[in-house]
Design a protein around this nucleic acid. Structure first.
Lengths: 334, 334
DNA sequence: TTGTAGGCGTTATCAT
DNA sequence: ATGATAACGCCTACAA
């Protein structure tokens, strides 16, 4: 079929090892020889065989991003950050959804196939997957794990502090009955954000009402139904803090459906700052986390572990910020 | 490091070929032998080496989805459809963005790396990429190409008919000044949708005003600015048909910004029916195309070509429909 | 039903 | 600066 390095070698009148050197940009090849080889390669339309290279090198230029269903907009940003890093660093990104077909994962992780793996919530907190990875000695990195450990590097923001700040912001606006829509409890980030919410209330001397806390699924419909439940309370909240933007968008939709105005009648804020936050109306006030950066930095930490499995796992905390757009306002009610 | 097929063979007391047979689920192995081998493989934590297998088989279990920047929501649905198909059929999906780092593509397409490639707009109409793929004899499939050809299979909806139907629908509602926000002209789908728009106007005996046609970029901001231009016209349109939902969302935002109500004062409709369509308010009336199905069927057609490069390329046209939500209404003005 | 020989295309090692 | 030889781990072809 297509040409191999031996064909190129013959055509260029050198040994195939020399071709190998040229293809890998190694030193110690005379310029004239190099040129001869390059010309021959171009003429023969030579393409290196990745399988053969990987077999011999015991390596791969593939990084896997393991995802599960919930928030597509979250994944989208992570994926973009990871893809950009990959293309700048000679890797390619394999995206695998394990929620559908769990058996795909073990195939994906067959020996030598992936140079490394990026885990996002909820897999970053999944002990099974991590043990699997460790057993196969595949380097991995965790994005937004509940807590850092010494098995793998990690990248995160300080979710607890961020949730605390946003809650305090709402309190500053005069709100004292603040509904919280959490993510599923198996997500470490959900627990951390809930803790931050509690921190703020306690620090401000407010009582924590468990009925104001509703567990969502990080999805738009779950934002709607939690909001519905909150409004059906005898004393509904004057502000709702959703643990991601998708749920906040659902909350706003449900609010409108009931003829309640945002932010005039009720304040709604989100978390993540993904695309939907600037597209809905009113534009969403939210916690911004630098998802693309997080993914890029995660990939970089992963590379360090790919290069040297013994290197100390690093843990990075990136800065977050509050992006106050137009979905919040002062508390109207007493 | 980890076990090879030979280690398993020794441990099970059979030849390595037998192990190979078991690992590939081939017939002609006594059940007792099979069990012995499986046990040994489990004990040794054996994982097949994909590089060695691919090298020998001259194959790969990787399918590449080549994307470029514009509409992330479009890509999202295509990607989900392709991923699901892949995990059901023993493949994995590599997602590569060529808009950033074009050189990544040639590396990705190195010999044997990818079993096949899925092209979406605008790459489905890019002659360079197609020639490259043909030169390397990598099977590929085109999603939503401008026209089908005999080089590769394709999957699409009838964009021209769909755009015509939506335009007619608006005409039926009494609109005669209908603005069209097209996609970039290098997209075949843009040209087809534009043609359908013209078809409808001509068939209805309306004149085509070129000033009512504005070229967008398939992005939210471009939807805003085109809409702004349309409203600045001496005689603005009473309805706007955006060639994708992102631009329609931008159009609605710009409309609100000017204090104009949707759909009371102006009708706005989109195209694609992606997530944003049901999340914004009012919920968007739009042309639905079955993106996930399209991707899954594309992958299936691709597989046929991977299995037999000589097989006749198939061309599938999937049904579309109009999803009339709440962003349209009758024409108020004369 | 099971086993043996050989090679896929590349890189590592060691020589020249 | 360049080349010969030997793996990497698996599968195909053929043999027993």
């Amino acid at each position: 079929m297509s040409a191999t390095i031996k064909d190129v070698a013959q055509s260029a009148g050198v040994s195939f090892k020399t071709v190998s050197r040229v293809m890998n940009g190694e030193e110690g090849v005379r310029d004239s020889t190099r040129k001869k080889v390059q010309d021959a390669a171009t003429t023969l339309n030579f393409q290196i065989n990745t399988s053969a290279r990987n077999l011999r090198r015991r390596g791969s230029n593939l990084i896997a991003l393991i995802i599960s269903n919930p928030s597509r907009s979250y994944i989208e940003n992570i994926q973009i950050g990871a893809m950009e890093w990959c293309s700048r660093n000679g890797f390619h990104l394999v995206v695998e959804d394990v929620s559908a077909h769990p058996k795909g994962l073990s195939d994906l992780l067959s020996r030598g196939a992936m140079a490394g793996v990026i885990l996002i919530p909820p897999m970053s907190d999944d002990p099974d997957i991590q043990r699997q990875l460790i057993d196969k000695s595949i380097p991995f990195v965790r994005i937004a794990p509940e807590t850092a450990n010494d098995k793998a590097p990690s990248v995160r923001i300080d979710d607890r502090a961020a949730a605390r700040e946003m809650t305090k912001k709402l309190i500053t606006l005069g709100h004292s009955r603040i509904g919280l829509i959490t993510g599923p409890s198996e997500f470490g980030v959900s627990r951390n954000r809930l803790a931050g919410y509690r921190d703020a209330l306690v620090e401000s001397g407010l009582t924590i009402e468990e009925t104001l806390i509703c567990e969502g699924a990080f999805s738009y419909p779950s934002g709607q139904s939690c909001t519905s439940d909150l409004f059906d309370l005898p004393a509904p909240p004057t502000a709702i803090f959703a643990s991601n933007d998708d749920m906040a968008a659902g909350a706003i939709a449900e609010t409108y459906r009931r003829g309640i105005a945002v932010p005039a009648d009720v304040t709604i804020v989100g978390y993540d700052d993904v695309a939907v936050a600037s597209v809905i109306s009113p534009p969403l006030s939210t916690v911004r986390q630098p998802l693309k950066d997080m993914a890029a930095q995660a990939a970089a930490l992963l590379l360090a572990r790919i290069r040297d499995a013994q290197s100390e796992p690093q843990h990075i905390i990136l800065p977050h910020s509050l992006v106050m757009r137009a979905s919040h306002g002062p508390c109207g009610k007493t």
